[in-house]
Nucleic acid binder design. Structure first.
Lengths: 345, 345
DNA sequence: TTGCCACACCAAAACGTTTCCGGAAAGCGC
DNA sequence: GCGCTTTCCGGAAACGTTTTGGTGTGGCAA
């Protein structure tokens, strides 16, 4: 099938009418519409996206930008794939398609984004791994491209974002440990400039201070958010003069390396040191003792992301009443054995 | 910047000349070209992709189709992300962009593919997880869309594919085990219709028979390609009347579950049962004892995939001399402790 | 009858780009 | 000076679609 023109000729109808029939526009007789739809189905006609995009100035494609940093690659990450299910279930209702745009690790992420946007390959963007100061946000705002950020920047300013409830998680973890008698609680945070690290440590600090425990910077261990990072964290922890009795990990992946380092040192997690991880990671499920951690549904988060994004787009706003611009996404505590160690005795 | 027209007007040059200047076509004075490039840079002009695609009939986008099956999601998988690095490094040379197209698990993969292709959103496709009989291949061939399949179908027929060297891996694993005295070697293969399962088991069978060991179907354990599948495989293995002394796993992920089941049964991997895994998986790196397995560079595989694909596209064929249509990708043995168990004593 | 309106459709313009074709200007050999 | 080629550029068509404005038909009320 060569195009709408052929289809129109085949039906002996003008192309305008065919177009309106296919797109569910008014001003077309029911019988005519039926015929058009039937013929399109039969001949396997599907509208050429380029032509449509050119005319409408819209591509009907939403981009999910992915950082394929070395760290992400090493770790492997089902995070984005987990999101796609929820995203697509919402987008499908509006005949929108999702594409994942992996930013090459060699290319500057802002340059990449700029290229994708300037080429008009997507109508809107979802960005993630928000930096403390993230130039992508200014760029998208200035270019008037609808977007939602997964993760807030330091300013937290005037744009749409969804972020995980780091405050809640940190508070919950800290209080749980305190209730077991721990006073000297370490935290393993990421060493790069991603903002969630700062938020998490801040929340940890506040939770401590609420319970009258002095914040000790020495207990904040900055390492890579990876298995290796966890091992390194174990190393750093063992090097401390006064050893902590508990540790909170900002990425569960760290638990794998941490466990290994602990075992090497003859320390049994859960018995000699309480460990709490942050985000449930399939890869951490096998750990012995099982890791106490915080869970969430990636699919549900995807749905929320999609709905939030569409709410910012004029064409779809009617379906998604404008709620709050920013959402804090809750997580659920999943108790395990790794924080069984208690000092109350 | 509104379009090439504005740019042309600003330079007081015709749009045709501007277009030629930007695209590196001849028939443009060096000085003029310089001015155009400078102005484009200054005004931030980037060609609208829709207009270009419409005119050229080409999108300059390559799609990497991803199955986001429940299994993939549960497992988490950095496989595709690992591929993107290599793919993009090649595509970038030709100003091609890569998009990952995650097929919603609710949608039939062929329907999804058909939609993406009919819409002309990509010029070419990379498909993966090839089924034994894969309708996508016929469809793409008939639609004359350049594509390369990662994984061959049962027919192995008349299309371009790249596949891992299952024969080599299976033979190497079997021989390694035989040389340690094992005669009763089990294999854990996937239970779905993905073709690599069949290829792998066939190769395993042939390797056995080459060494005069009778093939016993009871030793082929079909389970899900996941951690749970590995646990199940352990279960099945323990239920066998005559226990095998070694097992080959088609996915390393299985090793996690298998180890757990073995430990539960008081069996120590590597001491009481030899275990060899197939594809190196970051998540399996922490296992104790370390897993003997086969490695490959995902990045290199991505490069090969990209080059193979471009070789099939007339517009790029000149850069990539037409080699063999099909490639068997080698893997490297990475010895670990899990197959230390030997019967030679 | 006349006027009005709703309905269903057609013709044409527009979206932004690339590419084909023709032609002006300049250079060159004779 | 003449014919030829080369160099460079402008004009216009074309890609496939949506959308706007216009048109003819028939029904209905005045």
């Amino acid at each position: 099938m060569r195009g709408i023109r052929q289809l129109a000729k085949h039906l002996d109808i003008s192309i305008g009418t065919v177009s309106r029939a296919l797109n569910g526009k008014p001003d077309v007789n029911d019988e005519t519409r039926r015929r058009v739809l039937a013929a399109a189905e039969e001949l396997g006609y599907v509208a050429n996206q380029s032509g449509r995009s050119l005319r409408q100035g819209t591509t009907n494609v939403i981009g999910l930008m992915i950082e394929s940093s070395k760290e992400t690659l090493e770790n492997g990450d089902n995070f984005f794939l987990g999101l796609t299910g929820g995203l697509q279930s919402v987008f499908a209702r509006h005949k929108l398609d999702l594409v994942m745009l992996p930013c090459p690790s060699e290319e500057d992420s802002q340059e990449y984004l700029k290229r994708m946007v300037a080429r008009r390959v997507v109508d809107a963007m979802i960005i993630s791994a928000t930096q403390r100061v993230d130039k992508r946000i200014d760029f998208l705002a200035k270019a008037k491209i609808p977007f939602v950020a997964l993760g807030r920047s330091a300013s937290g300013g005037n744009y749409t974002w969804i972020d995980l409830d780091f405050e809640g998680v940190a508070a919950c973890a800290v209080e749980r440990l305190i209730s077991k008698g721990h006073r000297r609680i370490a935290i393993a945070a990421p060493s790069n400039d991603i903002n969630l690290g700062y938020i998490f440590v801040d929340a940890y600090r506040q939770a401590l201070e609420r319970h009258g425990i002095e914040y000790d910077p020495a207990l904040v261990i900055r390492v890579k958010s990876s298995e290796q990072g966890g091992y390194q964290a174990g190393d750093d922890l063992l090097g401390l003069e006064i050893k902590p009795t508990a540790i909170i990990l900002i990425y569960e992946l760290m638990a794998i390396g941490l466990y290994r380092r602990l075992v090497e040192a003859g320390i049994v997690p859960g018995r000699d040191l309480a460990v709490i991880g942050f985000r449930e990671e399939p890869r951490a499920r096998f750990l012995q003792p099982t890791l106490t951690c915080f869970r969430m549904s990636l699919r549900d988060l995807g749905v929320k992301l999609a709905e939030t994004l569409l709410a910012t787009m004029p064409a779809y706003a009617e379906f998604y009443p404008k709620g709050a611009r920013n959402t804090i996404w809750p997580l659920e505590l999943a108790p395990g054995e790794s924080d069984a160690f208690t000092l109350n005795s």
